[in-house]
Design a protein around this nucleic acid. Structure first.
Lengths: 206, 206
DNA sequence: TGGAATAGACATACCGGTTGGTATGTTGTA
DNA sequence: TACAACATACCAACCGGTATGTCTATTCCA
């Protein structure tokens, strides 16, 4: 019936458990023994699939966090003519879509970025490429908005996208510390002010 | 000449070394043995001044990081009639004033916030009160600007201040990952766009 | 004013527990 | 039968923390 050995499933199980362990404790404080205890996988199996703890961490970024973030924050912006409204919708929907975890544990990618970027070049580059994709996705959406007339054409899309990503991570990080939705909502107020300021100026057409 | 025993100086030495260790490795990965090795202080002395590692960490926030942040980001906003310009000046001056460390290691307060807020209530509350002071300082500066006519009076100062702090931390965090000033500058571009959008609307006076 | 008592300020040695990692043996499967 | 996929047992290094002893500056009293 079910195969007694299923390497793909074992690997997936390890990755998922490693993700949650890292998400809660950070990478350095993540314990391999805890991961093994929760999954029932043995240490021999873990070290069969991953060379060491670092490679396990890399795989979590490449195979889980990266795609997860892409789907949540980039895909929704790949179509539509009003990226500003789309971003607003994402902000308002974030608290509901993601669990309460988002307020207490923050953004998995940003957590790793803040912890590991200065310490390990491998982590830094992987996270950097994920963040670059994000910024590019936002930038392209802004340019599409400019072509559609929903975004002020004088705005530098690349730089504005960089600020938007920074403000996003900052907002989530601030809410994570306060552990309440109210700080998140307060920050979103300013966020929407900024988004509105990117609209085209309403010039009376001659 | 120099007193053979100087408890205040010993404590200060420990705090400073602990700050740097925590700044580089995070709190959980900070090693007491490394702190002792770099200072020449012995473990007996450390545990004479601090009950345990956690209390040492708390003291670093209370005695070092808190005041440090207050002086750098709140004091400059306590006077003057144009807070928006003052914030711009702080952003432009940050890269020079602080060393290259700011790009590689980020903001000490935010680092601790992201790592420890979900894990330890003592850290969380200390960091939260520091961030609250920051937001309040920005908010008061904005209100002063509104009274002076340099800030749009229809802006909700509290909420805008929250967003400004979030955007600040987000910008520093993003630059920390990229380890380059260009990403910082790009984000500051959007930051200044937002600050300008808080100006009073130029209505033709009747 | 001197000298003993006291307590703060360290120093040294050690501890159990946990860490990531490895060596070696066994089992299932193509 | 050969090799991937595990399982078990073990290791040295490091972790935060403690027990105990020593030194020294101050206090207190004769």
């Amino acid at each position: 019936m079910t195969a007694t050995r299923n390497p793909d499933r074992t690997r997936e199980t390890l990755l998922q458990a490693a993700f949650e362990e890292i998400y809660r404790h950070g990478f350095q404080a993540a314990s391999l023994d805890r991961i093994l205890a929760r999954t029932g996988v043995t240490k021999g199996a873990l070290y069969h699939h991953f060379r060491n703890k670092l490679e396990l961490g890399y795989a979590v970024v490449d195979d889980l966090i990266g795609p997860m973030m892409y789907e949540a924050w980039i895909t929704p912006l790949t179509s539509g003519e009003d990226p500003l409204e789309a971003i607003k919708a994402m902000l308002r929907g974030a608290p509901e879509q993601r669990g309460e975890q988002a307020f207490t544990c923050g953004c998995p990618l940003n957590n790793l970025a803040q912890e590991m970027s200065p310490l390990d070049e491998g982590f830094r580059q992987r996270i950097q490429s994920a963040l670059r994709s994000w910024r590019q996705g936002v930038s392209q959406a802004l340019r599409r908005g400019q072509r559609a007339g929903t975004v002020n054409p004088s705005v530098d899309a690349d730089r504005a996208a960089t600020f938007l990503v920074a403000a996003m991570e900052g907002t989530i990080g601030l809410a994570k510390n306060s552990q309440s939705e109210s700080v998140f909502d307060d920050s979103v107020y300013g966020f929407e002010l900024f988004l509105d300021s990117l609209r085209p100026v309403e010039t009376p057409v001659s």
